[in-house]
């Protein structure tokens, strides 16, 4: 195929295949102008664009991503990656995967660091980045973000599971929402195998509170049924707390001291598992778990 025909064909394919969220992207901002064509990726195609990190978006059930480049003469390029995550809870979840940065009031939550703005609103997760950070590019990134958030037009609901967090894991705690053992292990390695039986149907909240190096961790998991929660509890006990296993898989809380001198506690209520890691004392582990289980019962 001749180059000109190929380019025309590619442009037409891009236009024909552009997912609806492409309409949320502005043509310009702050003197920067969009440079066609947009790039669109779906399914495993994301690995062509993002390499291994594409696994993160797949772990949150992304539907498609539209990438648009903006140029301005003599200034660094800006790139917008607009992800349709299919649901507000997964847009929130993928946002919580990277929580470093300065809070910016864009979308439902926004963070900015070193030329990169990330935010979520409704079912969309958005990354706006500048090839180099300047005062001008930073302002344009902010303007682009504000335009896209406005175009989305409405907020989505945060995952209901967040409301099940006990008080001491709210406020200053780092809170992430996830489904996948790959994501869990990225933030807090539990096991090479999927001993918690996490999958796309399970929801989990990983909360960490305390200072770096001594963070206490709470992992709450909601399963589709009590039976699946019970199986996961048994699987976890067998692999991670075998010394606590002899009393079977009854929902009774278990506490063990781990090899680093900290304490781990585990318990089940109905469709939920609650796990505490890195507690400083046996009492703290048991108390934290009791508070988490009580919260599950009270709501």
């Amino acid at each position: 195929m001749k180059p000109a025909i190929w380019i025309l064909s590619a442009l037409m394919m891009t236009a024909q295949n552009a997912p609806p969220q492409a309409g949320l992207l502005p043509a310009n901002a702050g003197g920067w102008t969009a440079v066609p064509p947009d790039k669109v990726f779906e399914g495993e195609g994301i690995f062509e664009y993002i390499d291994g990190a594409g696994e993160v978006y797949r772990a949150y059930n992304y539907r498609s991503v539209v990438s648009r480049r903006y140029e301005k003469e003599g200034a660094p390029d800006l790139i917008v990656d607009l992800f349709d995550m299919g649901s507000a809870r997964d847009a929130f979840g993928v946002f919580t995967h990277d929580l470093e940065g300065e809070r910016w009031p864009v979308g439902q939550d926004g963070l900015y660091k070193s030329g990169l703005l990330q935010f979520w609103r409704d079912r969309y997760f958005v990354a706006v980045s500048a090839d180099a950070e300047t005062a001008e590019s930073k302002a344009a990134v902010a303007e682009l973000g504000a335009k896209i958030a406005s175009a989305v037009g409405r907020d989505g609901e945060r995952p209901e599971l967040l409301s099940r967090l006990p008080e001491d894991f709210k406020g200053g705690a780092t809170v992430r929402y996830l489904h996948s053992p790959v994501i869990l292990n990225y933030h807090f390695f539990v096991s090479r195998e999927n001993i918690l039986r996490l999958d796309a149907r399970t929801e989990a909240v990983l909360a960490a509170e305390g200072e770096k190096g001594g963070k206490r961790i709470l992992l709450l998991v909601r399963y589709p049924s009590a039976g699946e929660a019970e199986k996961a509890f048994g699987s976890f006990l067998e692999a991670y707390m075998p010394e606590a296993r002899p009393s079977g898989v009854s929902a009774a809380p278990r506490v063990v001291k781990t090899e680093d001198g900290f304490w781990t506690a585990a318990g089940r209520r109905d469709v939920y598992l609650a796990l505490i890691f890195n507690a400083a004392t046996e009492g703290e582990a048991g108390g934290s778990l009791a508070a988490a289980l009580a919260k599950l019962e009270s709501t």
């Binding site: 664009y49 993002i50 390499d51 291994g52 990190a53 993160v56 978006y57 660094p76 790139i79 990656d81 660091k113 070193s114 030329g115 990169l116 990330q118 990354a127 980045s129 090839d131 180099a132």
Partner: peptide, 10 residues
């Protein structure tokens, strides 16, 4: 690198 893409010419 920063952000979702694994590559940045800069």
């Amino acid at each position: 690198n920063i952000g979702p893409r694994g590559f940045n010419e800069a």
